[in-house]
């Protein structure tokens, strides 16, 4: 296979000329990027957040499983439209 030596030299030459990334500051950068262990994404792994989402005993029955409802998405999905919207399901056609 052709190895495109010249093209690679130009591309990498351009990269080096720009002096991008890395370099001497790599070590400092690394320190700057150091993450604190235990820092969680907002709302995740945060025990207290569970309290707002759930009242423990209040929802604690076996019978409130909502799965037998006919579920219809009701979010921002109505702002996304196009002819391909119905394609993959096969059950929904545009003329309804």
């Amino acid at each position: 296979m052709e190895n495109h030596q010249k093209l690679l030299s130009i591309a990498i030459g351009g990269l080096l000329a720009l002096g991008l990334a890395g370099n001497a500051s790599a070590a400092d950068k690394k320190v700057e990027m150091e993450k604190c262990f235990g820092v969680a994404k907002a709302g995740m792994n945060d025990c207290s957040s569970n309290k707002s989402a759930h009242s423990c005993a209040g929802q604690a029955t076996k019978n409130n499983d909502p799965m037998d409802f006919v579920a219809v998405p009701k979010g921002t999905c109505d702002k996304i439209a196009g002819g391909s919207l119905m394609d993959s399901g096969g059950m929904m056609k545009k003329a309804m």
Binding site: I12, G19, A21, A24, K30, E34
Partner: peptide, 10 residues
């Protein structure tokens, strides 16, 4: 975490 490409080494 990881560093970025070291252009000096390149």
């Amino acid at each position: 975490d990881a560093g970025t490409l070291d252009t000096g080494k390149l």
